[in-house]
Design a protein around this nucleic acid. Sequence first.
DNA 1: TACCGCTTGTGAACGCATGCACAAAGTCGG
DNA 2: CCGACTTTGTGCATGCGTTCACAAGCGGTA
Lengths: 256, 256
Amino acid sequence: MASQRGEGETTATPLEPADRERARAIPEAAVARLAVYLRVLSGMADQGVTAVSSEELSQAAGVNAAKLRKDLSYIGSYGTRGVGYDVEVLVSHIERILGLTRNHSVAVVGIGNLGHALANYGGFPGRGFPVTALFDVDADLIGVPVGGIPVSHIDDITAVCLEREVSIGVIATPPPAAQSVCDRLVSAGVQCILNFAPVVLQVPDNVEVRKVDLAVEMQILSFHVARRADEAASVSAGIVSAGNNGLGVDGMVIRP
Amino acid sequence: MASQRGEGETTATPLEPADRERARAIPEAAVARLAVYLRVLSGMADQGVTAVSSEELSQAAGVNAAKLRKDLSYIGSYGTRGVGYDVEVLVSHIERILGLTRNHSVAVVGIGNLGHALANYGGFPGRGFPVTALFDVDADLIGVPVGGIPVSHIDDITAVCLEREVSIGVIATPPPAAQSVCDRLVSAGVQCILNFAPVVLQVPDNVEVRKVDLAVEMQILSFHVARRADEAASVSAGIVSAGNNGLGVDGMVIRP
DNA sequence: TACCGCTTGTGAACGCATGCACAAAGTCGG
DNA sequence: CCGACTTTGTGCATGCGTTCACAAGCGGTA
Ligand SMILES: NC(=O)c1ccc[n+]([C@@H]2O[C@H](COP(=O)([O-])OP(=O)(O)OC[C@H]3O[C@@H](n4cnc5c(N)ncnc54)[C@H](O)[C@@H]3O)[C@@H](O)[C@H]2O)c1
Ligand SMILES: NC(=O)c1ccc[n+]([C@@H]2O[C@H](COP(=O)([O-])OP(=O)(O)OC[C@H]3O[C@@H](n4cnc5c(N)ncnc54)[C@H](O)[C@@H]3O)[C@@H](O)[C@H]2O)c1
């Protein structure tokens, strides 16, 4: 791989060419897990833990130990064989790879039920994602401070986003308005969008969209309920079930 | 397993043997997309569209047409070659596979900022996921109706969940309380959990957990911002980007 | 210093998902 | 009834991600 080049093996803190190479090669799925590891590690650091093994960390993060090590290997070799990883070191390297060494200003569009919750949420600023702009169309909301920030009119989105250097836009409007809001955000130069509206957004290639779709999540859960019910029905109907993975039978049956 | 009480309940799902076989084999990723197709199709049906081709539907759902056809093939062959799919037919079959022919009662735990938004949200009941129970520890909230449903005390969770046949539990408490709440839900027989708290939940094998982690979503977006910034820096520094085909063409330096 | 036990990092195999390409199967016009 | 055209359903190749298994490397110990 990239490390087989055997070229330079330096260790600088900021952006190193070798890391650029690596960052491009990190699988999307691994990036999501790195964020989880980071949170677990931060929690450990807060509790005074200074070192951790891949086994411990993987347990805490709910993943396979081998997968964790492979994920970490994507960002470099920062462990010590026979010992484990230094928590602080790992935290700083994951933060660097995830681009968390700088703040990312967030704008929330649509200050209704969900928008209010997001604007009031304290978890974002603490993690380097300060909410710096709020937008809505409702005249009654304009100027009203929510979570300490006054709501701006959606028509001012371009000016405000540029002025406050918004890098992430969060869409919490009703579905019909989502695409239009998205287009405006893109026009304002926002290249990252987090969408809560149950709508498939169309965006140019240079814009990254992630969606949080609660209805879909619910339906996936529903699917599993149904599948389970069917399996149970199959068993009771005498149909031989094939792929049942072995698991400890812990009597969970509760009879009221 | 959990809801064996009602014999007839609502419309009992007609379980066809062939579908059982199929449902077990549907890839997880395809299930998530089926939910999206369903929403798009429902929207089309509302607008009076009766037939649709895989090309049209895939465009609207933002996926590859071949992938869409493969996804649909997991649930059976309900299209007409040379014509396309009947919207109504497709809707009903996807609903059946996803287990949406019956209602899934939802309980929300933690009626703070987010819990209020969820309880007030009209999108769930309309899609077969009625919110029937709310829980909190805050004495000031107990008995207060939110979105039409009075908040119950968390200590009554087992009794209330059984009584209202809750099949999906939503956790919207602060992180430290999440695991404890989760355990209580599991004890109450809830086998599907949607978790908003930034915590890795430990559950028995027979419980399905899905998490919605906004911090992780933000950090994934942040990663892409950083990657992009690095790429731009690389280009301006004269480093050749090997982005598109994975072929590093050396010697070609583009200088503005 | 030499050895021992422990944990990392990774090559390699495997399995799942994606996308292509095309035969099969239908419609429609004549 | 036929032949041209359209679109589905799917076998297959490809690529990505996960898991296994183990050599390499490090700290501790005698
Ligand atoms: N509330 C939830 O728990 C929840 C859950 C899942 C999904 N969602 C989705 O999130 C979105 C918001 O939900 P909500 O419950 O907060 O809705 P809401 O109706 O309470 O709030 C929507 C807000 O968007 C504003 N708005 C409408 N058009 C706008 C536009 N063009 N530009 C800017 N602002 C505009 C409205 O004035 C309103 O304040 C919806 O798409 C909903 O489907 C919400
Ligand atoms: N608000 C957001 O936009 C947002 C965004 C992302 C993640 N989250 C996460 O969602 C969760 C809830 O966020 P929030 O902003 O609504 O918090 P909040 O503090 O406003 O509400 C939490 C509620 O949970 C209740 N609670 C505490 N312990 C409980 C227990 N043991 N049993 C039952 N109820 C209990 C509290 O009384 C309170 O009403 C948090 O974990 C947060 O990290 C929230």
